[in-house]
Amino acid sequence: MDAQLKKGLLDVCVLAAIEQEESYGYKIIADLSPVIEISESTLYPILKRLEGAGALTTYSRAFNGRLRKYYLITGEGRRRLAEFKAAVPQMEKVMDFILRRKI
């Protein structure tokens, strides 16, 4: 997949992965892997960027005698996700055009 397109999609995928409930690194990768190619090193900058943009927040919680970092979606994250979802019909039209299907 095109790098820029994938980058944009991965941001939304990560937000979608924590939309219902908070999640952690391993689980986010496990949830997204069947849908889109994502590695540990790819996820790290995405989480950092989304946190920097205020789209998610983090906190650490004890788990099995160690700390695990959890990622929570914020209002800004939900707004971004809603924005993407609202643009889907438009994107479908574009896809139809690209794939030369009949509209």
Binding site: A3, Q4, K6, E40, S41, T42, Y44, R49
Partner: peptide, 30 residues
């Protein structure tokens, strides 16, 4: 094996360290 080489993993992080510029190359592999 799933992590890949430590140098490549580190390079990916160094690449994305600066919010502007570094981030733009996010999609590419190390």
């Amino acid at each position: 094996l799933s992590f890949g080489s430590p140098e490549n993993a580190a390079a990916e992080i160094l690449n994305n360290f600066t919010e502007d510029g570094g981030d733009e190359r996010n999609g590419q592999t190390a």
